[in-house]
Design a protein around this nucleic acid. Structure first.
Length: 278
DNA sequence: AGCTCAACCTGGCTGC
DNA sequence: TGCAGCCAGGTTGAGC
């Protein structure tokens, strides 16, 4: 379930096993992901060391000797550390081997991505996919009152619904479909409200809500970190208890009003018609 | 520039 | 049981 918290938890789970280690082999089982996985990786990566693993939005950035490996989990991707001998499963797409350990991308729907950004193409921050992203929710730029200011400033003159504005990640990254509904509920803001009509206090509440929800979700996912090295089954995330997401018709946990579901930009939105104001 | 929507792909669930 | 139809955590790119 890759929204920012799941990507962050994945990073925390794999980094201790991978950082400082040298790639011994790369095996592309099925490279037909969102974009074709560069075939050159199998020649390029072996012998290169993983210096660090960073996260930018929902992208994982592996800093190597001669560039960065970018991995995005799409809708259904998971990255796991496995013994090198582990047998391939259906929908395993790419394996990066480190001696007896393997880093394996499993992605049924193939919306994920594995890309290479060579050093000679400039700093990773300038990568076209990363450059358009909004600020990190846990950065200094978004801390305290600055978060609300950013949401206010970037949303001016925008007629799009706040749900879609937030989900697009142009202002702040990492808020996926689940946590978007949850954040708007927490902030008491109606999802169809035009982004440009948000007041200063609403923006401040929304920035706080985004930070709190994402932080809570990371904490929930973090408790399953031990499962990352196991070789069987799923990574073992459990979804944070949601207040509105996937609760259509069920009573609001605050006021008992039935939770409503609508579709915005082809995605489901859940909200409490009583607690969330326009 | 911003908005809307189709598209990428596979599996699981619902309802007939 | 079988099968059609709908839904799903993300993001780009085309067309207006």
């Amino acid at each position: 379930m890759p929204e920012l918290p799941e990507v962050e938890v994945t990073k925390l789970g794999i980094a201790p096993h991978i950082e400082g280690r040298k790639v011994s082999a790369v095996k592309v089982i099925d490279g037909r992901l969102r974009w074709p996985v560069p075939a050159s990786l199998a020649k390029l990566l072996p012998g290169q060391k993983v210096h660090s693993i960073q996260r930018r939005g929902k992208y994982l950035l592996f800093e190597m000797d001669t560039g960065h490996l970018l991995i995005h989990l799409g809708m259904t991707g998971t990255l796991r550390i496995l013994p090198g001998s582990d047998v391939l499963k259906t929908h395993d797409r790419v394996t990066v081997e480190f001696g007896k350990l393997s880093l394996r991308l499993h992605d049924p729907r193939k919306f994920g991505a594995v890309l290479w950004h060579p050093k000679n193409q400039g700093p990773i921050e300038k990568n076209a996919l990363l450059q358009k992203l909004g600020v990190e929710p846990f950065s200094d730029e978004f801390a305290g009152d600055l978060g609300g200011e950013i949401l206010y400033r970037t949303s001016r003159k925008r007629s799009v619904a706040v749900k879609q504005f937030l989900l697009a990640g142009q202002a702040v990254v990492g808020v996926g479909n689940i946590y978007c509904s949850e954040s708007l509920f927490e902030a008491g803001i109606h999802p169809v409200k035009a982004a440009g009509k948000l007041t200063h206090p609403q923006c401040a509440r929304l920035a706080n809500a985004v930070r709190r929800i994402l932080k809570k979700a990371i904490a929930a996912g973090g408790s399953s970190l031990k499962d990352f090295v196991n070789s069987d089954g799923d990574p073992g995330y459990f979804m944070m208890q949601t207040k509105v997401y996937d609760r259509k018709g069920q009573p609001c946990k605050v006021c008992k009003t039935p939770i409503a579901q609508i579709v915005q930009g082809q995605r489901s939105t859940y909200f409490c018609p009583q607690c969330q104001k326009r």
